[in-house]
Amino acid sequence: MDDQTVEKIVAEHQGSLGGMLSILSEVQEKYGYLPQDALRRVAVATGVSLADIYGVATFYRAYSLKPRGKHLVSACLGTACHVRGAPRIADELCRHLGIQPGETTADNEFTLETVNCLGGCALGPIVVVDGRCYSNVQKGKVAEILRRTRAGLGEPRAEHGFPLTIRCPHCRQSLMDPAHPIEGVPSIQLTVCWNGSRQTLHLSSLHGRQQVSGGPEIPAGSIVGLACPLCRRDLTDDAICPECGADLARVRVEEGATLTICTRRGCRGGRLDLDIPGVEAADRPSQE
């Protein structure tokens, strides 16, 4: 480690508040883990004490002080994944890899870790391999996931969230448009009604992203109508956005959830609701 990698990374983040986390993340990305030598150099370069840096590096699960394998397999054991059978998936991963969570296989191919929530509760159980997300993992799918990873194949890489598969709640047809990918995954196709005109709009299907493409120029803050492009039925019902009070459009998520989208342009008041058997989505009190 005689190059200037660490020093370069530190220089890029100089002066930014909370730069330590980004520095450590980048160092880890470079070496696959946080080597002792690199941490000492971060300390020298930033002027922060090694004791503090070590404290940060050991506090977050995302950082590893031990070398990791070529592929990182994270099985989510958060509450939602847990009740959907995540422990069985984790056991299956252990059995296939012959290691316990936190360990690395002898051939240095896989590191297995368990995490407490990946934020995609509606899609659980979730397994993330090298940043590729596998949702609704069944026990039988584990071997296949590992085989594909070994062979260098994988699901489309979703850096920023979980891709959702959306259906119209009325006609039950898929609204996914593979011909129009946003951020590498098929987008959601919707009809937007504004100022008397109907146009098609594409919405990122990554949960948590609000990327939109196509559709008319709409000033932020205006309220639009949203409809299914296939059966042309209105997607809004009496639900109201908890953030801004506008109508919410409601679509089905194939994995067993409801996604609401605020009809006010620019409002981020939509959310993903898990299906709870016996409870109608509309009856559930809002979180606020």
Binding site: Q36, D52, Y54, G55, T58, F59, Y60
Partner: peptide, 25 residues
């Protein structure tokens, strides 16, 4: 001196030197 600090989190939180080796500072 800043030779020792908190390490880890939750149940595994502990006090000590970085990497558990004698600190040079």
């Amino acid at each position: 001196a800043k030779a020792i600090g908190f390490r880890g989190r939750g149940q595994n939180r502990s006090i000590g030197t970085p990497f558990d080796v004698p600190s040079e500072v």
